[in-house]
Write a protein that binds this DNA or RNA. Structure first.
Length: 422
RNA sequence: GGAGAGGUCGCAUAGUCCGGCCGAGUGCGCACGAUUGGAAAUCGUGUAGGCGCAAGCCUCGCGGGUUCAAAUCCCGCCCUCUCCGCCA
């Protein structure tokens, strides 16, 4: 959430940001509600001050007549306060709601552009493997080698579900364990295992709600929501907390299953395992001092790239332009792996700096070491990495002319020394 | 799921029966100061958050109600703990 005072004082900058983001938000409504709210608040607070003052006098007043008059007068004041409060409540409620619909402001360094065609390829690392044969897409490899069972996935759970079998299931499990270990051992993260079902407030904290409700699965009976990413439970670990400055920065890495209804992407990527309703991901989350968050973003991105480098997969880093920025990110870099079979760049990681946007929503603060007022932390996160697309890249890029698939060196110790699939 | 106990300012607690002197006492912790060659001990002062230029307003798990006035009374909800039941 961005600060109400900022909208009030810089409405034109906010409007321009929305234009650059190619989105809309109820700014005019917010300004009108805010004005109304402040007027009502001034009135109601003056009355409350009077009531508080007189009510304190009441027990000290000896004269019964005077006492009765004071009580009568305050009864009238009380009624007026109630009226004003009834008027204020819906204004405040709608204002709170509207503020949650305003996206984060893009960082000044973000290139301005209408859509993904204006994203900037920052660097390309590694070369696609040379193959003396026609590489196959993973859905063919997966079926031929008995590694991916689409038919039964659909039978069990419907479209966009599949099963990994045998070596593929093992490979995924090995990748998860290995990636977590790399981030813990080499990059300084603390591993956490979070809940997959969270309360609704958490989704507000990380900004999946209120705007993206249609993409979430939830249990209406208990109002518990399935996480679309470990970002949600992990970022919310410190919601409503005031951390000590010395605790920062906090780095967490978490593996979780992720659940997405994909309502907004219905019909896209229906082939293969690129986009499912359930997938696994290793996620990195950081809580940092505001002064350091841009540096921290670069390191986070490098941590994610390190996985690609160690797996010897060709990738590129793309900076999102304003038009392709997500709702809550101020800056975002994607990492895309090149897949030989389907001949496309696959997004395996999104590394974002949210600045204080999520911290405001989730009320995550720190107390400066000099003892000053609590300040909002900056939060960041990045995939490190998402499994299905990583699996695609490995299956397609490590396929060999004899029909087998090589296991990347780095993973072999986690596969009991196994060197090829199936 | 059943029975009981409880959620108060970093932590621990007092206050709740009998509403006002309680936005809130005490201890610990922490900060600063005094004392000291230095330290311990001791003493003193300070020490929750939000809104507001300020006066002031709001917050004692959350929401609602009663009242001139609610931490305190009433209703609903959430969470924690203990015991019982059930269970990977």
């Amino acid at each position: 959430m961005i600060e109400l005072g900022y909208i009030r004082e810089h409405p034109d900058e906010v409007r321009q940001a929305l234009v650059n983001l190619h989105t809309e938000a109820p700014i005019d409504e917010i300004l009108a509600l805010d004005e109304r709210r402040r007027a009502l608040l001034a009135e109601v607070e003056a009355l409350r001050a009077e009531r508080n003052r007189v009510s304190k006098e009441v027990p000290r007043t000896k004269d019964p007549h005077q006492k009765r008059e004071m009580i009568e007068a305050m009864r009238a004041v009380g009624e007026r306060i109630s009226e004003l409060e009834d008027e204020l409540a819906p204004v405040q409620a709608r204002l709170d709601e509207a503020l949650l619909e305003v996206p984060n402001m893009p960082h000044p360094s973000v290139p301005v552009g209408p859509d993904e065609s204006h994203n900037v390829v920052v660097r390309t690392v590694g070369d696609p493997p040379t193959m003396a044969f026609q590489p196959k897409p993973h859905w063919e490899l997966g079926e031929e080698l008995g590694l991916i069972d689409f038919y039964r996935g659909v039978k069990i759970s419907g479209s966009r579900f599949y099963l990994l079998r045998g070596g593929a299931a093992r490979l995924q499990r090995a990748l998860i364990a290995w990636m977590i270990d790399v981030h813990v051992r080499e990059h300084g993260y603390e591993e956490v295992y979070p809940p997959y079902l969270v309360r609704r407030e958490c989704l507000y904290g990380t900004a999946q709600l209120p705007k993206f409700a249609e993409n979430q699965y939830f249990d209406s009976e208990d109002d518990l929501w399935l996480i679309p990413t470990a970002e949600v439970p992990v970022t919310n670990m410190y919601r409503e907390e005031i951390l000590a400055e010395e605790q920062l920065p906090i780095y967490h890495v978490a593996y979780s299953a992720c659940f997405r209804r994909e309502k907004m992407s219905a019909g896209r990527d229906t082939r293969g395992i690129k986009r499912g309703h359930q997938f696994d991901k290793v996620e990195m989350v950081k809580f940092v001092h505001p002064d350091t968050s841009m540096d921290e973003l670069m390191r986070l991105l490098d941590n994610a790239e390190d996985i690609c480098r160690q797996l010897e997969l060709p990738y590129r880093v793309v900076q999102m332009c304003t038009g392709d920025l997500s709702f809550s990110a101020a800056v975002k870099y994607d990492i895309e792996l090149w897949a030989m079979g389907c001949q496309e760049w696959l997004e395996v990681s999104s590394c974002s700096n949210f600045m204080d946007f999520q911290a405001r929503r989730a009320n995550i603060r720190f107390r400066p070491a000099d003892g000053g007022k609590p300040q909002y932390v900056h939060t960041l996160n990045g995939s490190g990495l998402a499994l299905p697309r990583l699996m695609i890249a490995i299956l397609e890029n490590y396929q060999r002319d004899d029909g087998t698939i090589g296991v990347p060196e780095a993973i072999r110790p986690y596969m009991g020394g196994q060197t090829e699939l199936p």
